[in-house]
Every structure is written in C-alpha cells, then in structure tokens.
C-alpha cells in the first residue's frame, strides 16, 4: 500500500533521515520505534508532503506521491495525526471534526454518518462537542485529533506518538481505540516510544536510530530481539 524507497531528508546540511525503506501492506498496523529525534516524525512529515525527500521516492497504491502537495495527499487517502495534535484550539470539538472532513466537504450525508461513527468510537467527544478544543484534557485532545483524522475517511492513518504525555490508563484505552480503527478497515502506521504497547497491537516494526533504520521485523521478532528488548521494552 505504502512504500518508502531509499528516502533521505535534509534540513540544510543536516541529514534527518537516511535511506529509509518502509513497506506497509493494506490492513496492517506497522510501528516505528525510536528515541526522540531519531527521525520518526520527519518520516511522517515527508509522507504527508510537508517535507520533500532529497533522494528516494514514496509510493502509495502504486503511484509516486513525492511531488504532491499535502492537501492532495490527504485526498489520496493518507491522513496524519501529528505529535503535537495540531488542533484548532478556539474551534469547538464538532467544528474541529468537521474540518477533518474538508476533502469530502460536498458529501454532507456521508460526513454526518462519519461523524456519528467517530462519536461512537469516542463518546466523550460527543459529550463535549460544543466545547473549545483547547479546553479539553490531553487525552481528550488526542482522541479529537484521531477523530478529526478519521473524518477524512483515510485508507492509511499516520499516528505520531498518540500516547505521549497521557496517563497509563488513557494510554491503554488509546491503543484499544487504535486497534478498533484498524479492525474497521484503516491501515495504520504508528510512531511510538511505548514499544511494549505498540508492538502488542502491531504486525511489524522498524527501529530508528539517528535517522537510520537499524532493526526491522515482525512484532514477534522484535519482542525476541535482545537489543530491542533492552533499549525499548525494558524487560
């Protein structure tokens, strides 16, 4: 479905990621593991078209998306839920969700239907639908960010550290929701530091270090890998 081939990205002279190769197949949950600054978010920004790769190419369902602008990439079916959530803080929860459906803005009925589905997945958003997004708690904001991304009915959802800064109980719920979204038919590429939780729902994973992928394999293989266990799972 999505494949990155030898992608490198530079910020000025600094190479943020180097020769990255990633394969995501339809229906999978794929996780990118790695410390802060290892290049996970840069990879996401590049897939979404906010950064342009210096070398390499990105294919989505067989065609290159490297030359597309971010809005065209959303239309093609890839949506990103960024690490800092990027909500519209003064808009209400419902207005934020409606903006998520921007690419489908002419299909009013479908939007209404998707909105109901999102409210079903995150009932708290329905309860708080008239509150400003900026007034929500961290966990609720993350749910809103995911819900807003779902409103574009993506084929592939990029989730950048959805568990960051959340209480353990909320993190557990968050991963359950992610699994639910995947079962409902959305392919997921997930960046996480919480390796244990992420690998337990993922099909396979890639481990980042200093802008390179150092280990890759199925979840089982990564769980069994001694170095990965030491560095990211801590057991």
């Amino acid at each position: 479905m999505l494949s990155l081939r030898d992608v490198s990205v530079q910020y000025g002279n600094y190479t943020a990621i180097q020769n990255i190769n990633i394969e995501v197949r339809s229906g999978e949950i794929v996780v990118l593991l790695g410390a802060n600054g290892a290049g996970k978010s840069t990879t996401f920004r590049t897939i979404s078209g906010l950064n342009k790769p210096a070398t390499g190419d990105i294919f989505f369902e067989g065609s290159s998306i490297c030359s597309l602008t971010p809005d065209k990439i959303v239309k093609a079916g890839i949506v990103q839920c960024a690490e800092d959530r990027k909500l519209f803080p003064e808009m209400s929860v419902q207005e934020n969700l409606m903006m998520g459906a921007y690419v489908h803005r002419r299909k009013k009925k479908e939007i209404k239907h998707t909105l109901e589905e999102v409210f079903e997945l995150f009932p708290i958003l329905h309860e708080k639908r008239n509150q400003a997004a900026g007034s929500l708690s961290g966990g609720q904001q993350q749910m809103l960010a995911i819900g807003r991304a779902l409103m574009s009915k993506p084929e592939l959802m990029l989730l950048d550290e959805p568990s960051i800064g959340l209480a353990p109980l909320i993190v557990e719920q968050m991963f359950e929701s992610i699994q639910q979204i995947n079962q409902d038919g959305t392919t997921i590429l997930l960046a996480e530091q919480n390796a244990h939780a992420a690998l337990s729902i993922a099909n396979k994973g890639y481990v980042y270090e200093n802008g390179n992928i150092v280990v890759e394999g199925s979840s089982k293989e990564l769980f069994a890998n001694e170095e990965v266990r030491k560095a990211y799972i801590g057991a």
Binding site: S48, V74, V79, L87, F88, E90, M91, Y102, S152
Partner: peptide, 24 residues
C-alpha cells in the same frame, strides 16, 4: 461555509489545516 471555516482553521493552526487537506 467550509471555505470560510478554512480561513479560521488556517489562522489557528497552519500545519493542522494543511494536514486536513486544506490548500493553504
């Protein structure tokens, strides 16, 4: 209108608007 709301959205978070498929 969606077009009008996209002006507000872009003012509140430019990249957020971009990632929602709004042509900034």
């Amino acid at each position: 209108t969606y077009t009008g709301a996209s002006i507000i959205a872009m003012a509140q978070n430019r990249e957020g608007a971009h990632l929602m498929g709004i042509n900034t």
